[in-house]
């Protein structure tokens, strides 16, 4: 690749700059995250007669914490865009648009999806062992593999690949939307993103309702062999997975263009 598009050395310089400029903020955020998890796990355990947490609670709280904290963190992507002065520094920094975009994507979504579960796992165990000092019951360590240890309905088993593709794409979209919002909105990006998403969903649901109910599309009998109109479980998951993937790619492209066309 041309050095004006992507250069590994410059990418590493971006990483170094980010960690030097933001190390205190990252440390405080990690401590706050661990603290909140510890307190909430403790409150839940106390309200449950100090019975140690099991794999089910681990799974539920893991998803909740990663979703909430992850969206909060991703929602403030491109932090330099929050102020005019910082935007000038960011845009004038000698790095290509692709480097800056990829760096933000990796640090906001990639690294977050690795670090938040690990920090949760560590805090979960620290809290579990700490509380075992005050109860006769023994805390059993939980592994990440146990979070996936649940039975799938047989209808879904037939379309496992598309089902997982859909779930992964949907989860990714949950983070990509606030990521793009961070690139689009300078002030209060997360609030504006949630508002925009709500408007889009309401408008989409409204149009769908009008098309299906009022215009009579729901009474149209489709041919079973039509690829885009799903008629079985596999077809439904494939359709939804494609829709979610296209939504992800579109949103990432919008974020890239916003970064490229940013003026200040």
């Amino acid at each position: 690749m041309s050095s004006n598009i992507f250069n590994g050395k410059r990418f590493l310089l971006l990483c170094r700059q980010h960690f030097i400029h933001s190390n205190k903020m990252l440390l405080f955020s990690a401590v706050a995250y661990i603290g909140v998890i510890f307190i909430i796990l403790s409150l839940v355990q106390m309200s449950n007669d100090r019975v140690p947490h099991d794999a089910e609670i681990f799974r539920e709280l893991l998803l909740t914490f990663v979703a909430i904290f992850g969206i909060l963190y991703v929602g403030y992507s491109f932090p330099s865009f929050r102020s005019k002065e910082a935007t000038i520094n960011y845009l004038m920094l000698p790095g290509s648009v692709l480097e800056k975009f990829l760096f933000e994507l990796i640090i906001r979504i990639g690294l977050m999806l690795i670090l938040l579960p690990i920090l949760f796992w560590i805090t979960f165990h620290l809290q579990g062992y700490f509380f075992s000092l005050f109860t006769t019951e023994t805390f059993q360590p939980v592994g990440f593999q146990q979070t996936m240890d649940f039975e799938m309905p047989s209808e879904i088993k037939e379309a496992m690949f598309w089902f997982y593709t859909f779930i992964v794409s949907l989860v990714a979209l949950g983070f990509v939307l606030p990521f793009t919002g961070g690139a689009m909105f300078s002030k209060q990006p997360l609030v504006k993103t949630l508002f925009s998403v709500a408007i889009i969903i309401i408008a989409y649901a409204g149009f769908t309702y009008i098309a299906v109910e009022k215009l009579g599309v729901g009474r149209y009998n489709v041919n079973d062999s039509m690829w885009l109109i799903p008629t079985d479980n596999k077809g439904i998951f494939r359709f939804l997975a494609f829709a979610a993937i296209i939504a992800n790619v579109t949103m990432l492209f919008v974020a890239y263009r916003k970064l490229k066309e940013k003026e200040v």
Partner: peptide, 29 residues
């Protein structure tokens, strides 16, 4: 905004942003 040009331009705006780190760290970064 090609990096080959940006590395040869420095803009000091009237109102600027500066992070809360030491000079040595700023230079290192």
């Amino acid at each position: 905004r090609e990096p080959s040009l940006l590395q040869d331009i420095y803009f000091l705006p009237e109102e600027f942003y500066i992070p809360g780190i030491s000079m040595a760290k700023y230079v290192k970064a």
